[in-house]
Computed example of a mutant assay.
Amino acid sequence: MAKVAFLGLGVMGAPMAGHLQSAGHAVTVYNRTAFKAQDWAEKHGGKWAKTPEDAAKDADFVMACVGNDHDLRQVCIGDHGAFAGMRKGAIFVDHTTVSAAVTRELADIAQEMMIGYVDAPISGGQAGAENGQLSVMCGGAQGDFDKAAPVIDAYAKICRLMGPVGAGQMTKMCNQIAIAGLVQALSESLAFAQKAGLDVEKVVEVISQGAAGSWQMVNRHKTMAAGEFNHGFAVDWMRKDLGICLSAADDLKASLPVTALVDQFYKDVQNMGGGRWDTSSLIARLTN
């Protein structure tokens, strides 16, 4: 069992840290809002720290799941950042969805400090985090990955090394690109069924068994049809992720026309007051 620090206790990070503690690891948590860290420690029996640096001291692994590039820089190299507290040979594992650029920047700093670095963004949503069934796509050195993977397994359904540092983030972009187009298509299908006077349950029962079937269809069609959008991953965060995708596509000279369009549709949802709705709320544009 390892000594682990976990930085960031949002809807994803809190249950992930809980799985680590349940698996027998010695977990110390940090959260920008201290009372969340205190509550987590009381609930799970772990420890909490006032700064990322304090949380990272003597840890074998430091996991982070924060908001964006700026947040990640702050917890790594800001005042009392985690890197300052990490010992040589420890490994930093970043579960945040951020740009490949900031990933490589921080990995270079970590290397200079003789700290391992694995970028390991996640997919599976709040339910995946709570059930320990996340997909984890990693970038980094083989040796660092081999050490980190057994710890990550506490909350992973699948964990794979995709290539060098940054490859995990690039794979997560592929994931978000695929989701954006799929949710828009599902939204149009369900809205069409409603306007055609069809029984949505029967429609989904039939088409989900064929080529149109998807996780989103099976797990979200009922709440989408009912206009209920309280399932974790928010539109605001999806727009952040799609912005990363579109920026990377410019650098790669890759064409993402559907992704760019759906990003604007999510902007419409934000303008409707749905920034905190989950990503299935694209249907609201079509039914309101």
Results as ranks from 00 to 15, higher is better:
1 M>Q: 03
2 A>N: 01
29 V>Q: 08
29 V>F: 07
31 N>F: 08
33 T>C: 05
49 A>L: 03
51 T>K: 12
52 P>I: 05
52 P>W: 01
54 D>W: 08
60 D>N: 07
62 V>M: 12
64 A>Y: 09
64 A>E: 13
66 V>L: 03
69 D>I: 07
76 C>N: 13
80 H>D: 12
83 F>T: 01
86 M>Y: 03
92 F>D: 01
96 T>Q: 09
98 V>A: 09
103 T>H: 07
111 Q>N: 15
116 G>A: 01
135 S>R: 15
136 V>C: 11
138 C>I: 00
140 G>H: 06
143 G>K: 08
150 P>K: 06
154 A>F: 00
159 C>H: 07
161 L>R: 10
166 G>Y: 09
173 M>H: 10
180 A>V: 00
184 Q>W: 00
185 A>C: 02
189 S>M: 14
195 K>T: 08
198 L>F: 07
212 A>K: 04
214 S>M: 00
225 A>Y: 13
226 A>T: 11
227 G>E: 05
229 F>Y: 13
230 N>C: 08
231 H>G: 10
234 A>P: 02
241 D>T: 00
242 L>G: 06
248 A>Y: 12
250 D>S: 14
253 K>M: 07
255 S>F: 13
259 T>H: 01
263 D>R: 14
264 Q>D: 09
265 F>A: 14
269 V>T: 03
273 G>D: 03
276 R>I: 06
279 T>R: 06
282 L>P: 03
287 T>G: 03
288 N>H: 15
288 N>I: 09
288 N>G: 14
